[in-house]
């Protein structure tokens, strides 16, 4: 209960410091592996943004934008994994990322029977002076999708 009230407090007394600094920005990448020992470097970005978006789609998204908002939530989860000191919060964020990648795989009907091991990593993008740099800051443990399905 106390924990929940702690979560409520920033809503009742907000800081309103929107975009005060442009922090390193996380990208979530994942891979599917055949077994626990496979070392394949086959990371793919989770839900990459489209090359273009029509004005009509932007207007539709005023009313219906679930996957983009979910992606923004996962950005928060990625930041919590890196910044948050609480083990419980890190575990929660990691589980959220796993479960939402898994849902996406199911939605896209990706066959995972031969590659049941899911892993994700967090790549933070930042500007160092004028150069854009990418740093891999976290690699998750393996998550066996086959165990959950059975």
């Amino acid at each position: 209960m106390l924990q929940t009230l702690k979560l409520l407090l920033p809503a009742l007394i907000p800081s309103w410091r929107f975009f005060d600094t442009i922090a390193p920005s996380p990208r979530i990448e994942f891979r599917l592996l055949e077994n626990e020992n496979q070392k394949a470097d086959i990371w793919q970005e989770f839900r990459p943004r489209p090359a273009n978006l029509s004005i009509l789609t932007m207007l539709k998204r005023m009313f219906w934008n679930p996957y983009w908002n979910e992606s923004l939530f996962l950005v928060s989860c990625a930041e919590r994994i890196i910044n948050n000191q609480s083990e419980q919060s890190r575990r929660h964020s990691s589980q959220e990322i796993f479960s939402r990648i898994q849902c996406e795989l199911e939605r896209e009907r990706t066959d995972v029977t031969t590659t049941p091991y899911l892993q994700f990593r967090l790549v933070f993008v930042l500007r160092n002076d004028t150069q854009i740099e990418q740093h891999i800051t976290y690699i998750s443990a393996l998550h066996n999708l086959g165990v959950e399905a059975s």
Binding site: T4, L7, L8, P10, A11, F73, S76, R80, Q88, S93
Partner: peptide, 24 residues
């Protein structure tokens, strides 16, 4: 409060905080 617990914080940062502030 249940939603806050479910997501261990706001789901969509500032907009959820403003929603809760208005609601409270």
């Amino acid at each position: 409060l249940f939603v806050l617990r479910r997501f261990q914080g706001p789901y969509n940062g500032g907009s959820d905080r403003m929603s809760l502030l208005i609601l409270c």
